[in-house]
Amino acid sequence: MTNPAIQFEKISRHFGDVKAVDEVDLEIRDGEFFSMLGPSGSGKTTCLRMIAGFDRPTSGRILLYGQDVSDLPPFQRDVNTVFQDYALFPHMTIEGNIGYGLMIKKVPVSERKRQVDEMLDLVQLPGFHWRKPSQLSGGQRQRVALARALINHPKVLLLDEPLGALDLKLRQQMQVELKAIQKKVGITFIFVTHDQEEALTMSDRIAVFRDGKIEQIGTPAEIYERPATTFVAGFVGTSNLISGETAKRITGDARMFSVRPEKIHLATANEKIPAEMYSADGVVREVIYLGLYTRYMVELDGGETLVVIEQNLKSTSMDVLKAKDQPTRLLWSKDHINHLGA
């Protein structure tokens, strides 16, 4: 069995009194697309910077394929980074930028040229050799930054919110492309993002960060369907959290549970309740028509408000808007609730 690509052993990083990263243990497997997801200030970027070597842990060890790299400077680590602002060298051509790592390693010019060509093909920018970074669009710079890192064949590639500056369409396109490139080169990718959709789209596994600690690690489906904590349930997608009296009335158990808005079916007020379903009665307070789907805010008889999403498969905006202020019965499968710890 091969060593994990990255292993954190009780890693902490303090900035003065602030514990940016607090005793994190983490294992990232060889060849996986791993995302670190969390709001800003949750410690995900600090973790990435410690892997790259730009920051040193206050305590703990970082292993790269079994080798302790905690005390190695960035230029001695076999990892490369794609920066949030791309960090392309403005005084060099695209060829100079991509070939930078090889030039430092004193790879002969002809060999360097051949590999730069190969990389430009990989990121679909053939013939861009002599342009300057300032002449490229955001998406193109992004690709150059990727090529510049990949040409060194790092053991691990670190990506620090690289899609943050791109517009939505381009971002979605790059998500697909990044994933394809990762499959092609087979390198372990560690991807930092605060965008849950991005993490769900690309990752093999996701770690959700909060206040310097990891809340949950799992596959996208696990994180989404079975959030371990209320924080994960709220940060990844939208969740309805139900606890106390209402929870007891619905499930017969006062433990808090979450249910996703799209799992809930909006039925008529006196529809029959199938045996495998839970139900709750209430009144539709708000109808928000969003084209592809409609979002309903339903006030339960107990006082809580639940979010329900239904696709507009057959209905039009005229139909859905009629639901406002109507009594309704919410139904969802018993499999679709998820009990949460604390």
Partner: peptide
Amino acid sequence: VPKSLIEASGDLGASASQTFRKV
């Protein structure tokens, strides 16, 4: 000069003196 350029240079394998000369 953004700090990330200096970090990028180190990340790509350049020592401090190489980063100074090249970037």
